[in-house]
Amino acid sequence: MKTQMLTRDQLDQAAAFIRQGELVSFPTETVYGLGADATNEAAVKKVYAAKGRPSDNPLIVTVSSEEMVKKYAANISEDAQKLIDKFWPGSLTMIFNLKPNVLSKAVTGGLSTAAFRFPKNQLTLDLITKAGVPIVGPSANTSGKPSPTTAQHVFHDLNGKIAAILDDGPTTVGVESTVLDMSVETPSILRPGAVTKADIEAVIHRNVMDERHHVGTDQTPKAPGMKYKHYAPNAQVYIVDPDDSWLDVAKWIEKHPQPIGVMAFDNIISSIDWPMNAQIITLGSNSRTASHDLFADLREFDNHPEIKIIFTQGLKPSGIAEAYMNRLNKSAGQMHFKQL
């Protein structure tokens, strides 16, 4: 299969591919997704095959209207409606109970719930509307690798495995959406993102649980990223915690002659006399730029196979930095500089 790179002017072709049961990568404000007709079981199964994704890892359903959600969701609570009004379109995915037999087990992982997302990207909303169906929307990468934030990242991972990539330039947020479980009595965050716990509580005026945990081998996760290794580049990532000394990191690098990757804020990069074998990429100046750049920077090091270790700046998990640290911890497999 030849993967086509499509532009905004070729939206009709992208929608035709979806209706034909083919796979099309689509842009959102967070990361690029891998789209297939969510009502076509055969098309959905192609997504798992293209990504190499475990079949018990449920897929997010991406929609272009509230009405499309209500066709499948069993009920939308008053709190959920408040969140829809505030954050949709945007970086909040919500899990609802489903009406009976409305979506394939290939979408839900066999659960009676599904996660719904209304992205803030007009090109993708137009794609879904033209296709006339909701589309599944996992990240458009090889399973376990850093999520794609450009069309070129998708092409690198999935060229020859999908019909097309709809290119709308780099994404603006850089980490996947917040996943909020609204199918339970107390709303629970299963994956942090740009919409924070404080943001949600300010709208619904009640406490929200933080239910992020590792799912056992015999359990089906309710949301992506809860069970399997994610976001890992080829090199081993080590987190440099806020209380670690970057001068100690530089000294460690100097003692090891092989090329070593470094990802840190501008002020840290400029404050240290780095050894020649340090290969440095900036994370910008704050948690928002770090979140935006994280996946792209990890992917950049994959272009340098001689680099086997990457030291990456850890942040105190507050606001969007919580989403950043969630992804970084998974990328590093919980490995820290102080463990060396």
Score class of each variant (00 low, 15 high):
H336I: 15
H230D: 08
S139I: 06
I269V: 12
R327K: 15
T171H: 09
I281Y: 10
L125I: 13
D85S: 08
V173R: 09
A202W: 05
F155C: 08
Y48S: 07
P221R: 07
N97I: 05
D248K: 03
I135Q: 02
P275T: 06
L125C: 10
H205P: 10
H213A: 13
N121M: 01
P224I: 07
W274S: 10
N57D: 15
M1T: 09
M182A: 04
Q258C: 11
F311H: 14
R117M: 00
I260R: 05
S331L: 06
I320W: 08
E300M: 15
Q313D: 07
A80M: 02
K45A: 07
K330S: 03
N101R: 10
Q258Y: 11
S55C: 10
W88H: 12
I18W: 01
V154R: 06
I162R: 11
G109R: 02
R117V: 00
S147P: 00
V184M: 14
A232H: 05
Y238P: 03
P233C: 03
W274D: 06
P259W: 04
Q10L: 01
S318T: 14
D79R: 11
V237C: 07
I253H: 07
A235C: 02
V203C: 07
I281G: 01
S25G: 09
K222L: 04
S139G: 08
G216V: 03
L98R: 02
N121A: 00
T28C: 02
A38V: 09
D248N: 04
A49W: 08
S77C: 04
L158C: 12
P192I: 01
I200C: 10
Y72S: 09
V184W: 11
M1P: 02
R53W: 06
S270H: 11
G261S: 06
F87N: 03
K316P: 04
V240A: 11
L328S: 11
Q236F: 05
H156R: 15
S104C: 12
G333Y: 04
G137K: 02
R288V: 15
E66N: 14
F116E: 03
P148I: 05
N277V: 03
L98A: 05
L166I: 10
F118A: 04
D56Y: 07
K70G: 09
F337T: 05
I307W: 01
N57H: 08
D218K: 14
I76T: 06
S183F: 14
D241T: 15
F265Q: 14
P224N: 07
S177Y: 07
K308I: 09
P148E: 01
D297E: 13
S291A: 14
K255T: 15
V175K: 12
L127C: 02
K251I: 11
E185D: 15
H336K: 13
E211C: 12
N303G: 05
P148C: 09
G109F: 06
N329T: 10
S287W: 03
F87I: 09
F337K: 00
D12W: 08
L328V: 10
T39Q: 12
N97C: 05
S55L: 14
D9L: 13
P134K: 00
T129A: 10
D79I: 12
G261D: 06
I268K: 12
N101Q: 13
K338D: 10
E67F: 13
T289L: 00
